[in-house]
Amino acid sequence: MFSTLADSPVRPEVLEALAGTWEHLARPGTWWTGAQRLAIAKTARAARAHRPLPDVELPKAAREAVAMIAATPSRVTALWVSGITEAIGEAPYVEIIGIVSRVVAIDTLTRLLGAELEPLLEPEAGQPTREMADPRPEHVRTFVPVGRVFVPTFTLSLVPDERATNDRLGDALYMTDPDMENPDLTRGTLHRTDIELVAATVSYENECFY
């Protein structure tokens, strides 16, 4: 898996996180089956690349959510989310956010490194776990319940497995919580200010106010 990145000096922990994310994608999730999760991934890829959406078996609202989050996340509004979650439910919507964000991120990395996009795996059989967050995060000001701490790691709290999977990939690609405290962090020749310059520019280009 991810053998096309073998020619680049990708850190082992990043390669491990990429492979883990890809395997996780094909497994039954919390609210969607493995086949549905791969359909979400396929749709996200097409939407992010501004290609026609594939004909996959997903509810219409789910397809709409995937396309919006993949291509124009800053255009998401409270009203739009309430329409989507009325149709598919809040937790399934949160699972879509997790899947789409990771697929877009991994495709972005492989594209920047000049590699071929990683082929999606075959879906694993089985039913979604329907695991509920316990305790359920509070619904305060946000479009879906995320609790009272407004930082990225808590955004997917409604679906614990999605939160954990996003955290693992984010920690490998960006930095861990302890590293976050260090304004003078260096990774090889890359300084923390360099890292944050990239982060801020991506956020600006995505029109992300946060």
Binding site: I97, V104, T108, P152, T155, L173
Partner: peptide
């Protein structure tokens, strides 16, 4: 990799309305 990570963070923040 950092750029890729922010493709995640921007989406989770904006899609949940934080």
């Amino acid at each position: 990799g950092v750029a890729a990570a922010f493709e995640i963070y921007n989406r989770v923040i904006d899609a949940t309305g934080v």
